[in-house]
Design a binder for these strands. Structure first.
Length: 934
DNA sequence: GACATCACG
DNA sequence: GACGTACGTGATGTCC
């Protein structure tokens, strides 16, 4: 078939696929010989997905995968340094390059590369040819260099975000249309590809200039007219360099001797070619999936004799496909007995609950699913109501064909509580709390979400959808397809039982499969100890804390709300008066207009949406010149306190318990910290007097007291330990004021003569170091000139050379291995650490911070895990954790005993796994409310 | 749903 | 020499 009108050509940027696949997957190797094949596996998956996704109305008629030819291109003849900044490809990726070509051909897709040309040039050439022939083109890539090709039937598709990029998308990115993209790129340059461009000019400025003068040649010809002296000089002096840059970025759309378009026609893969290739790679599950799709028998891939393997793809046994139609609906006690017997026989069972709410404290149990083997799963409905989504009011009557909740729980309880049967769940804390409310204590447990967290923190989130997609290549039935969204959403008890069976049992099936995949991984990744000592045992502790809840006094909050509302109304009137007009004070956009246009203040910066930005520090500066900004700041503070705290907290008081029950997300922070949600009780105000009063509403019941115990300077102590800073360790051992001690050492001031200002600066630097300090950041924080801030930092590193060394070592380790570690072995992955551009700075600082923040998080986790045993027998309940602080409720008479017991656990929490060279010190407070206790 | 803002350690 | 810059979170309101 010749290429012409009505044809649709897909051009896949092969190199982008390879790199994405490489970074997305753990380093898999071929089981039989250890050949690295992770990128090939990911590449095949993506290619297959691409082919499958493209079926339908908009299907391509022609497809090609375009690769870069290794080696130099014609651009290096123009400019020898072109792409000279590129690091070499990772060692274990190099042997995979030719395999991805083989894979492409095995899929029966045209595989194109050409010596002396980059993939982009070939893509440009084909795009032009296809356009001229009257066809359409989709370029599967997000590379901005390709944006110059968009238009006239050519579009890009960002496969990652599944977003199409047309002319508008290009304008959004470059501020000009596709035909002027090269002009903008020529001016802005590109640090990744080492295109020089015009120094000092970025994309924004470049677009501005091009839009004003029409095109680059006109701009350069009329450069004399430009008002800004710097820009004018650069454009005149660097004109040749800019023209050369344009030649570098302009794609060559006339690559000679390419395969003709006709040769790219899409053909079905030949099973006789493709399957043997996949078999040779030992991709078992992918072979199976593809064989199923092609409707042929999947090849038998023999297991190699050696058991050593690190490829889950290869290691996965031949699993039955996930098929929701095969799950069993359990509606007789005999059937239920059969399932409990199966669980007992195997010694493990995956469990999942379906309920009416995400709030475990209020959710009603609707059904329970179990899985004992991959593909063998059931659902036990107990609380489904009659009448489906169409029934406006539904019915409170139970649907037919369900066992009673009580009899089901009675039958399951012996299994769920049996120490010899492992209960496997995805986010088991949720299900355990549901069961706990029905008097069932689920134990022992394993949790696939936590396994994923121990294995892959920093790489991706740990929700079931993500895990299923990544590790089982399967997209579970979306809950939205059952419940709908928004206002019309129904609760799970309104879902027809037959649909619920498929969804719920599939979740248990997936959980079981994930568990089988993760279990051996833990050991290989050497995170078994992390999982067993820092993750798994924390689940019951957090569940208990959440169920305990904290008493919050509604009247106190309500009174404060009213007072805030009154003050806000007064401020609002004053603000409108000062502005000379009425506007929404809560709208930064409207406020920006008033400040920077109507009132004419200087220094208004616009954000990415083109609106003025009005954060607190900007308003603080303006407050010296005008009354309005200060009033807005006051209004904002009150607005925050009212909406986020005094109002929202009241809504979170549980009607049954009269207390507020937060949820901790154990996998919420990459570093090992917890996150608190619904409501977040880890950000209750404390820094301002007015805010702190909110804490007065967190109270102890009659006859009890709130205790707060917090680690003093735990992160700095950890820094002193890991970086081996002897003088700082000594200061901690001697119980000195650490910031004053730092100041004394840095500025050669005796402790006795320390001024608050000097101490404040040292404190800012101490914190800055933990965050991966920069001169700019410190300067902004201390509001001092950048040079001065940099001088402080230099001085600090001079005094504490161990810190510089620690930073370099940590970043080096991250670059080599892709992760950093806490003292307790927790891994935090840093996939961006070898990236180029602004990402790199963030990744670098995060890598420096993660072991410190993470070690502190590990220590308090250890304390929390040991706490129940330590306070056993005392009238004490652990209620809350705020990163370095634990809050307890205790009988008045037992305060001293409780503090002693808790402090001992917290101060000794690192032992015996890690011997710290600095003491851990815990401060304690008590009172009738949290404000007093803190 | 993205963005800006601000609460905490 | 410029770039863009402290680390980790969650909740709220506005605006499209």
């Amino acid at each position: 078939m010749s290429f012409g009108k009505g044809c649709h050509l897909h051009l896949v940027d092969g190199s982008a696929f390879i790199f994405r696949a490489y970074h997305a997957l753990p380093p898999l190797t071929r089981k039989s010989d250890g050949l690295p094949i992770g990128a090939v596996a990911g590449f095949c998956n993506m290619l297959f997905k691409q082919v499958e996704d493209a079926k339908g109305d908009d299907a391509p008629t022609h497809v090609a995968v375009i690769f870069d030819y290794s080696g130099k291109s014609f651009r290096n003849d123009m400019y020898p340094d072109y792409k000279a900044n590129r690091p070499p490809a990772p060692e274990d990726l190099v042997p995979q390059f030719p395999l991805t070509r083989d894979a492409t051909r095995a899929f029966n897709i045209a595989c194109i590369e050409k010596e002396g040309f980059e993939a982009d040039d070939i893509i440009a050439t084909y795009a032009r040819q296809a356009r001229e022939a009257g066809g359409r083109v989709t370029i599967i890539s997000s590379d901005k260099d390709l944006m110059q090709l968009v238009g006239g039937g050519v579009e890009m598709l960002d496969a990652m975000k599944n977003k199409r990029i047309g002319i508008e998308g290009v304008e959004e990115k470059f501020g000009v249309g596709p035909e002027r993209v090269v002009d903008v790129q020529a001016l802005a340059g590109d640090s990744v590809d080492n295109v020089p461009g015009a120094p000092g000019i970025g994309i924004k400025t470049a677009a501005l200039l091009i839009n004003e003068y029409g095109d680059l040649d006109t701009l350069l010809a009329r450069a004399e007219e430009i008002k800004q002296p710097k820009r004018r000089e650069v454009l005149i002096e660097k004109a040749d360099q800019i023209r050369m840059s344009r030649d570098l970025v302009r794609l060559d759309d006339d690559v000679p001797e390419l395969e003709p378009l006709e040769a790219l026609e899409l053909k079905d893969p030949d099973a006789e070619v493709l399957l043997p290739f996949l078999a040779s790679m030992e991709f078992r599950s992918l072979s199976k999936r593809i064989a199923d799709t092609l409707g042929v028998e999947s090849p038998d891939i023999p297991e190699p004799p050696a058991p050593a393997a690190s490829s889950e793809e290869a290691a996965a046994p031949d699993l039955p496909p996930i098929d929701p139609d095969k799950y069993e609906r359990v509606d007789t006690m005999a059937a239920l007995a059969r399932w409990t017997a199966l669980a007992a026989e195997r010694g493990y069972v995956a469990v999942d609950t379906e309920t009416t709410s995400l709030d475990e404290m209020q959710a009603e149990l609707v059904g329970i699913s179990l899985a004992v083997l991959p593909g063998e799963a059931c659902y036990i409905p107990v609380g489904h109501k009659k009448g489906g989504a169409d029934d406006l009011f539904g019915s409170d009557e139970l649907a037919e064909g369900q066992l009673g909740l009580d009899e089901v729980l009675a039958a399951l309880k012996p299994v769920l509580e049996d120490a010899a049967i492992l209960k496997i769940g995805q986010n088991m804390k949720y299900d355990a709390k549901i069961f706990a409310r029905h008097g069932v204590k689920v134990a022992p447990i394993d949790d696939t979400m936590l396994m994923s967290y121990a294995l892959y923190s920093g790489l991706h989130n740990h929700g079931m959808d993500t895990l299923s997609d990544r590790y089982l290549s399967h997209e579970p039935i979306p809950i939205k397809s059952l419940l709908g969204t928004g206002k019309s959403a129904i609760t799970f008890d309104r879902v027809p039982v037959d649909e619920a069976v498929k969804y719920a049992a599939e979740d248990a099936d997936i959980t079981l499969r994930l568990w089988q995949s993760f279990k051996p991984q833990l050991h290989r990744a050497q995170v078994t100890t992390v999982y067993e000592t820092l993750e798994r045992p924390l689940v019951p502790v957090l569940a208990q804390m959440e169920m305990n809840g904290v008493q919050v006094d509604r009247d106190t909050l309500s009174r404060m709300s009213n007072a805030f509302a009154q003050k806000m109304a007064g401020l609002e009137a004053e603000i409108h008066d000062l502005a000379g007009q009425s506007f929404n004070v809560g709208s930064p956009a409207q406020l920006g207009e008033i400040l920077f246009e109507k009132l004419g203040f200087e220094g208004g910066k616009k954000g990415k949406t083109g609106k003025y930005s009005t954060p607190a520090d900007v308003l603080e500066d303006l407050a010296t010149e005008h009354e309005l900004p200060g009033k807005v700041l006051d209004w904002r503070q009150l607005s925050k306190l009212k909406s986020t705290y005094t109002d929202a907290l009241q809504a979170h008081i549980n009607p049954e318990t009269g207390r507020v029950h937060t949820s901790y997300v154990q996998t919420g922070a990459n570093t090992g910290r917890l996150a608190s949600t619904d409501p977040n009780l880890q950000n209750i105000p404390v820094r301002t007097e007015e805010g702190r009063r909110i804490r007065e509403a967190f109270v102890a019941p009659e006859g009890k007291v709130l205790l707060s115990l917090d680690y003093s300077q735990i992160e700095l102590r950890i820094l002193a330990h890991v970086a081996g800073i002897e003088s700082m360790r000594e200061a901690f051992r001697d119980g000195e004021d650490i910031h004053a001690a730092t100041a004394s050492e840095m500025f050669d001031v005796p402790l006795a003569e320390m001024t608050p200002e000097t101490r404040r600066r040292a404190k800012a630097i101490n914190f800055g170091v933990i965050y991966g300090i920069s001169g700019f950041g410190l300067a902004r924080n201390l509001r001092i000139p950048r040079a001065e801030a940099q001088a402080f930092i230099d001085r600090y590193f001079e005094k504490y050379p161990g810190i510089k060394e620690y930073m370099n070592d940590t970043v080096g380790f991250a670059k080599d291995t892709g992760f950093v570690q806490t003292l307790f072995g927790r891994k935090i992955h840093t996939p961006e650490i070898n990236a180029k551009g602004p990402h790199a700075g963030f990744a670098r600082r995060a890598a420096i911070n993660a072991p410190i923040q993470g070690t502190a998080a590990d220590i308090i986790r250890r304390a929390m895990i040991r706490m129940p045993a330590a306070i056993e027998g005392l009238p004490v309940k652990m209620l809350l954790q705020v990163h370095d602080e634990l809050i307890f409720e205790v009988d008045e008479g037992a305060v001293e005993d409780a503090i002693a017991a808790i402090r001992a656990v917290m101060e000794g929490a690192a032992d015996p796994a890690v011997k710290l060279s600095v003491p851990l010190v815990v401060d304690a407070g008590q009172g009738a409310n949290w404000a007093e206790a803190h």
